[in-house]
Nucleic acid binder design. Sequence first.
DNA 1: TAATCGATCTTTTTT
DNA 2: AGATCGATTA
Length: 766
Amino acid sequence: MGQEIPQYMQELNPEQRQAVLHSLKPLLILAGAGSGKTRVITTKIAHLIKEEGVSPRSILAVTFTNKAAKEMAQRACDIEPLAAGCMLRTFHSFGSWFLRRNGGLAGIDSSFIIYDDEDMVTLLGAIAPEIKKTDLKLIAHNIARAKDCFLPPDSPGIDKINHTKMFKNIYKKYEEALARCGNVDFGDLIKKPVEILRANPNVAERLRDRFRVIMVDEYQDANIAQFELLKEISGDNTYICVVGDDDQSIYRFRGAEVRNILEFPKIFGDADIIRLVRNYRSTSQILQVASSVIKHNSGRLGKELVAERGEGYKPQLTFLPDQDQEARSCADLINRSINRSINSINNGINKPEAKYSDWAILYRTNAQSLAFENEFLRRKIPYRIVGSLKFYEREEIKDAIALLSFLVNPKDEVSFRRVINKPARGIGAATVQRILDARYMEEDWNIESACKKMLPSLSAKAAAGMKDFLCAIQESREIIEEPDTSIIKGSITKKNTSEYSKKDSSLKAVEGLSSCIAHLIQKAGIDEYHRAHDDINGEQRVANLQELLNGSVLYPLTNAGLIEFLEHIELDRAIEMNEDATDRVTLITVHNTKGAEFKRVIMTGLEQGLFPRNEKNDEDLEEERRLFYVGVTRAMDELYLTCCRERRVFGQRMNQTPSLFLREADKTQIRITGNVPFGFLSARSTDAGSWAHGNAIVTAALKKNTSSDGRWQQGDTVFHDDNGYGEVIKIIESDDGPVIKVKFQTGREVQFLSMVQSSSFMKIKN
DNA sequence: TAATCGATCTTTTTT
DNA sequence: AGATCGATTA
């Protein structure tokens, strides 16, 4: 309206501005890595509210992770505080929100809890005890996949997932069992809302009436069911805008459908496309590596990132003997950067400070983190591990959650099975089965009522245990349902959130509140069970329970509070442990890095069969390649790649070969160090003999602990594991420190750079 | 019914 | 190498 362009718009480049101002038609924003897509989305939200008069209430923004949702909310509010009124959720939390309100239309009680993969397997085991657990896992996976694709058991398309009659049968039985429990699984959070919306046009109408603007982040990760949900909630008057990058689609394995993005313009007819290709994150040499690899993929929408930053440092590829040396090499690299920083500060040089938190170690599989943890512990390098904590998958945590779930929903068979005999109450499989059979006599299949009814017919031992269990449940329920205390406690707890969530809210603080969620767990004896049960890990387990229960203090001790707490646990599993300001290196899987950025990135384990992982087909390989692309484009200033010659796999030494992606990468943009494997650089040469070392600068360390000040001089005698004795013939100063040219007794001349410490290179005489 | 010791399998990636 | 599972034993 006004003549003046607001500050937040001035900060945008022309394409970004165009995307923010766009209206009327559906919009697909193809946003390359580091192109400022979050800025575009948040600015667009703010702009809609500020300038277009859109009510925050009618804006829905969907992301895939809670972290992204929180960040987006924060940044939108920074520009326009009213953005706090928008609905900003993950797909699953949106589905859950919808189901709690409208689930009744599909026979789902609003107090449902959400089963995770493990719970699915437990339930399947109850349906088909004759099937082995590994097979049950596969079936659970297939059911989840079917739901991702919006395929019920009797749909014709189900054959694509698994065509056997047995599968369809068990899928059907699983759905029935789930309904009996009154719960849902992850897939249902998307699938059920679609079904309800289709069967109830009035509900759909109301929803479409409310949400006039829908935005979807990371659209390339949407699966078919999520796509269907989008179609259901967007009506003729809905403005829909999706943001994604086909090159960053890395969740095909869990049902993400790249075609959603490839065919968006076709399906949401007449959509506009805006490409954001200016990359503000990485230096051009890093982007060069990324794009030289990703261009081997077919079926891309086509988009080449343009580096807006300068050249920077050359990415470095290091070949190492094994994973232990790999870890050591990374630790050296990190320590060197820290020491260099300290030195330059001491010398009064105003160099940017190097911090541990500038560094991230990326790996393909969680198992690889072990070697780094060991080495970093030994070297006292502070680190944090992102994801993989599997906190909520731990036995003691699941036990506590199961108890709370059963309190909320006494139909919950999975939770019942888990808690009935923990602590030991002398109730075995036979008794459990009798109870579960008896529940069908109860109204609503209430398992707790069945327990009470069966009490007289149980053996003395089982009956005593059952009484104990029922008492604990009953007492807990009395605490929860005492109306006046719960309401007061609820409001107090909510208001004092910050006070209780402080780090020092130790167990004592929790114990002080006699009627809080933690108290329920103690009452049931779950913490005591774990303390006594496991000599070695018992205390750790109790500590984990405390960690969980500390979080629960934020929720009021009401039924609703419990449900909220459980939902939070199920949908936001990224627990904030060690989220203090401590300066730490990040250890992280490549999948987990999406959306993140680091100044210095080390991508490790770039070996065939590990990264890329054994691929079954071309599509798998392309997804691995995208994953590589995602990893590389996390780096802002420095990129390091490592590849081991040998690796322990299942405790067995395995010979490794360099990753296909290393062969595809533009070698002119990479400094290659370490012992280069035969043939790596001569892939194009017909002469297999003329390879490697001649072209490569081999890196080794300057040993500081030798006699003099550690400086290299011409004439120094050296020893090298691979090359034997030699003499320093030339020293060349470079940006990265001195490059040392050595002539070995074999006659070969090799250059060394003092970048990576390695015990294979020693200076023996000055 | 619980605890202990081998045998067997594991390494994708996650809302 | 380490975890998990299951059969065997007390």
